[in-house]
Design a protein around this nucleic acid. Structure first.
Lengths: 113, 113
DNA sequence: GCGAATAGGTTGGCTGCCAATACATACACT
DNA sequence: AGTGTATGTATTGGCAGCCAACCTATTCGC
């Protein structure tokens, strides 16, 4: 998987893994990696600016938690974030349909159709 | 469809529409638009640099043709381009599987799983 | 004490598509 | 003849956005 393949789809990924409940940064990276079958390996320089941006947009809310010993910043979906996630899912569907139709046309290419 | 959504997948699109036979620039744009159901509207500033790059890489070959009256530059897949197209297709499959698995997990998210 | 694992965070830079722009020719219409 | 529209190729600047590299801090094993 080429490095920045998630370009343009990162927001949806972050919102999706937070749908099941709040997670902190490292757990988000682990969740994306696990759910993608180990294919998608996000970096902190990728997610932290994105998480901040999503929080500024009101799609996430964050809170510091002292989980046992270590401080953690947990991110949680807001209602607006849930709505945006639904939009990202339909956008993803439209996107894959469009690209897929060009890449693998239903009418198989014959000689000089 | 957000503007630069094809980022990272443009090469595959161009190679795919040329699989059926040689096309010139405008016809390539039209073919992508038609096969995507009108969703993908590429611009000349997008495809011409890409076509040149693909030709430099040996994936396409081009030739000037005087179709009736107007000069046209027709692009054609090379054997290397055909092999690359196959690779783009499997990369696309892997990509959609990975993103799709994160966005729409097989295990539906329940409350605090 | 020292290294590794866990955790959060910032910055510079580069890739690559797009918008804007330019130019040329053919054709229909007035 | 002039004007607008469609067809066709091509270049340039700009910028969004992800990543690599880097930094800090704490806990735990040895």
């Amino acid at each position: 998987m080429k490095a920045d393949a998630v370009r343009g789809h990162l927001d949806g990924l972050l919102l999706a893994v937070l749908e099941s409940g709040p997670l902190h940064g490292y757990a988000i990276i682990a969740a994306v990696q696990r759910r993608s079958g180990g294919v998608l390996e996000l970096r902190t320089g990728t997610i932290y600016p994105a998480l901040n941006r999503l929080e500024r947009l009101g799609l996430l809310s964050s809170s510091w938690q002292s989980a046992g010993d270590r401080r953690r910043r947990c991110y949680e979906l807001t209602d607006a974030g849930r709505r945006t996630l639904a939009g990202e899912r339909s956008a993803w569907s439209e996107f894959t349909t469009a690209i897929g139709s060009v890449l693998n046309p239903v009418v198989p290419p014959g000689p000089v159709t």
